[in-house]
Simulated assay, not measured.
Amino acid sequence: MTFVKANNPLSKSFDGLMNELFNELPATFGKTMREDVLGFPPVNIVEKNDFYHLQVSAPGFEKADFNVKLDDKILTVSAERKEEAKTETDKVIRKEFSAKSFKRTFTLDEKIDAANISAKYENGILHVGLPKKEEVKAATKDITIQ
């Protein structure tokens, strides 16, 4: 499974420069930039014997905010949080919470059983299960000699 950049109108040379920049900076700085500036939530991908486990860190969202879609071999995980207009009588001194939307896409290979992909949102983490297809074993056949 590989990461595919989506909705990025920037040139490849700029992407290469940004990748080098983030790889050479301390991990925490790159992580902060990725989450805060670029809007990408961090993702862990774990391979097990019979499936891949995709974990998207997205605290503060509701289950209904997520959209997980498979289009051919492209898996898209997105979330949009709608901020309700509230009339509050309290004076807000500082507001750091914001409603950010995100979209991540991944290219799945032929090893994934697309019909059985599952998703669950729990404790701020979206868990996506990507089961592997059972390997087709070559059938043994005796051939008679004529």
Rank of each mutant, 00 (worst) to 15 (best):
T2Y: 04
F3R: 13
K5G: 09
N8T: 08
S13I: 10
F14K: 08
N19S: 08
N19G: 02
E20W: 10
E20K: 15
E20R: 14
E20N: 15
L21E: 03
N23S: 15
P26I: 04
T28G: 09
T28Q: 15
T32Q: 15
M33A: 10
M33C: 01
R34N: 14
E35I: 10
D36L: 07
D36C: 07
V37H: 06
L38I: 13
L38P: 08
L38D: 08
P41D: 08
P41S: 08
P41M: 07
P42K: 06
N44Q: 15
I45P: 00
I45C: 01
K48E: 13
Y52N: 07
Q55S: 11
Q55T: 06
V56I: 12
A58W: 04
E62S: 14
A64D: 14
D65G: 07
F66A: 09
F66I: 08
V68S: 03
V68Q: 08
K69E: 10
D72V: 14
K73N: 01
K73M: 08
K73A: 03
K73F: 06
T76E: 14
V77K: 03
A79F: 02
E80S: 09
E83T: 15
E83I: 15
A85H: 10
K86M: 12
T87S: 13
E88A: 09
T89Y: 06
D90A: 11
D90P: 00
V92P: 02
V92W: 04
V92N: 06
V92C: 03
V92M: 05
R94Q: 13
R94Y: 11
R94A: 14
E96G: 04
S98L: 11
K100E: 00
K100R: 07
K100F: 10
S101M: 09
K103F: 00
R104G: 00
T105R: 00
T107L: 03
E110I: 03
K111S: 04
K111C: 02
K111R: 12
I112N: 02
D113F: 01
D113V: 07
A114E: 01
A114N: 03
N116F: 01
I117G: 11
K120P: 05
I125G: 04
L126W: 10
L126C: 05
H127V: 06
G129I: 11
G129K: 12
P131R: 08
K132L: 10
K132D: 04
K133H: 09
E135W: 00
V136F: 02
T140Y: 05
T140Q: 12
T144D: 06
I145Y: 11
I145N: 08
I145F: 08
Q146T: 11
Q146R: 13
